[in-house]
Write a protein that binds this DNA or RNA. Structure first.
Length: 485
RNA sequence: GGCCCGUUCGUCUAUCGGUUAGGACACCAGGUUUUCAACCUGGGAAGAGGGGUUCGACUCCCCUACGGGCUGCCA
């Protein structure tokens, strides 16, 4: 699924008919890791398209040559892949399509929808400076907007949109509702820079149009841009897509999510051991709802997801809830799949891989492990009894329960296990008997037993451990502990 | 400064003019219990503030406060 190769899309000069198929896209800038907020945006686009039999495309907005890196692109694709968001076709490089963007800019010029502006950046800065000083709008009003082409100097120029100055532009947003902007609040944005490269504002529109994108689902920091982009669509006579501007995700303190909140990159969540399914569920639920449903499968999410149910207020990240949802997904995952995911986590986290024996043991133990773990590290910690090999070294807490008396009891228990039928009922009966003989409850004997078998004070049920370990290993571990006493 | 968006329990949210404002996570108390987890029962916990409209507002309108976004030859 992951391909590092970006292709250039074939450009179609004419408007494409709006089909009934839904086409969404995720368009990240490759300037770093995949942001958790971006991941959610991608998820929403994916859910919307996949739930409707549509297409989910990927476009890398790499027109900022200063900040774009192939490493970042790779990281983003890796993140999406881990999250389980598969995209259709090859990722498209926006930069590679610059000729097409320029072509459209000149078409706009030819149509009179744009004009050449020879103002230098210094002149513009001076204009703004003065406007600010005079308390006027700082929107730049180019003197070249209505200039006679005959007066054009032989100098570098940018191509600006000839935006309407009267009336207003309506953005019909599936999430935000109808939002109108007065046209005099919008300036003549630059479409083509003086070096001939396209600006984002032009490139998005051209690409979304050429890619046949029907629904633009993105962060609400683009809501204002939608108005200006609408003008480009109108200037070119292209159908305007359905807009859906979703609120950003904030940190637990309600402030914009940033590095100081800890985990911002999706890969950090992967490293912390959250299962991808839990991540999808949690992220989908963040800002979107389907009644009171909290835990759901991908199939349900795809069937239920809709733009109208997306909230308009920014949501905060809540790790406790993420954990809870993740735990439910781990518990609901089939053993075989869970084993694979656990191994993938180990690899991603740079931890040692499982030996064949550990692998086998873990797969036997998952049934009694998955209900008690919220993350993979927790699962692995609780699987210590099956991952460790003799002699079991008890940790300090476990060692405490292995005093002389306890060892004596274990020594007494061991021979009785020798000939026992190895099933839960029998084992429980024997252990209960021994406990009773000493006038103690099961709890008193379970502690030392747990310590001897797992070397930990936290593990699955002692009976589950005995069943998973088998008679020989159980007796051997008990012998290791009880013997020297 | 201008324009735009937002504001229901601590958090995520339900409600789309009439509910004792519901659920989930978290929290507290109790229960079950071989640890952890899970599970069961119960509990506290919300409509930013102020004006309207209406028989009736969380819901519609206005103002204020607070938060966020845009205002680039960044995306």
């Amino acid at each position: 699924m992951v391909s590092e190769g970006l292709i250039v899309m074939e450009s179609t000069g004419s408007p494409r008919p709006q089909g009934s198929e839904v086409v969404t896209r995720f368009a990240p800038s490759p300037t770093g890791y995949l942001h958790i907020g971006g991941a959610r945006t991608a998820l929403f686009n994916w859910l919307y398209a996949r739930g409707r039999g549509g297409k989910f495309l990927l476009r890398i907005e790499d027109t900022d040559r200063e900040r774009s890196t192939p490493e970042a692109t790779a990281a983003i694709l890796r993140g999406l892949t881990w999250l389980g968001l598969d995209w259709d076709g090859e990722p498209i490089s926006q930069f590679a399509r610059r000729d097409r963007h320029a072509e459209v800019a000149y078409q706009m010029l030819a149509r009179g929808a744009a004009y050449k502006c020879f103002s230098t950046q210094e002149e513009i800065e001076a204009y703004r400076e003065q406007a600010r000083a005079e308390g006027r709008s700082t929107l730049f009003q180019s003197p070249w907007r209505d200039a006679d082409p005959a007066s054009h100097p032989d100098a570098p120029f940018v191509i600006r949109m000839r935006a309407p100055r009267d009336g207003e532009t309506l953005v019909q947003d599936a999430v935000q509702g109808s939002v109108t902007f007065r046209n005099d609040q919008l300036d003549d944005m630059v479409c083509l820079r003086s070096d001939g490269t396209p600006t984002y504002m032009l490139a998005v529109v051209v690409d979304d149009h050429d890619m046949g994108v029907t629904h633009v689902i993105r962060g609400d920091d683009h809501l204002n841009n939608a108005a200006r982009q609408t003008m480009v669509y109108q200037a070119m006579g292209w159908p305007v897509p359905v807009w859906a501007h979703i609120p950003l995700i904030h940190g637990p303190d309600g402030k914009k999510l940033s590095k100081r909140h800890g985990a911002v990159g999706l890969e950090e969540y992967q490293a912390m051991g959250y299962p991808a399914a839990g991540m999808r569920n949690y992220l989908a639920r963040l800002g979107w709802s389907h009644g009171d449903d909290e835990f759901f499968t991908d199939a349900q999410a795809k069937a239920w997801f809709d733009l109208g149910q997306i909230g308009r207020a920014p949501a905060r990240l809540d790790f406790k809830k993420l954990e809870s949802v993740s735990g439910q997904h781990i518990a609901a995952t089939e053993d075989a799949a869970l084993l694979h995911e656990t191994e993938a986590f180990l690899a991603a986290a740079g931890r040692p891989a499982l030996s064949p024996g550990q692998r086998e043991g873990l797969s036997q133990a998952l049934y009694c492990l998955k209900d008690r773990a919220k993350t993979f590290p927790e699962l692995i910690e609780k699987a210590h009894f099956v991952l460790a090999s003799r002699p079991i070294e008890p940790d300090p807490a476990a060692a405490k329960s292995l005093d002389l008396v306890s060892r004596g009891i274990l020594a007494e228990l061991t021979p009785q296990l020798q000939s026992a039928s190895w099933d839960r009922e029998t084992l429980e009966g024997i252990v209960a008997q021994v406990a009773e003989a000493h006038g103690m409850g099961l709890g008193k004997i379970a502690g030392p037993l747990r310590a001897a078998l797992a070397g930990r004070t936290v593990s699955p049920s002692v009976f589950d451990m005995m069943l998973v370990l088998g008679r020989a290993e159980t007796l051997a571990r008990l012998g290791d502990t009880a013997g020297p006493a």
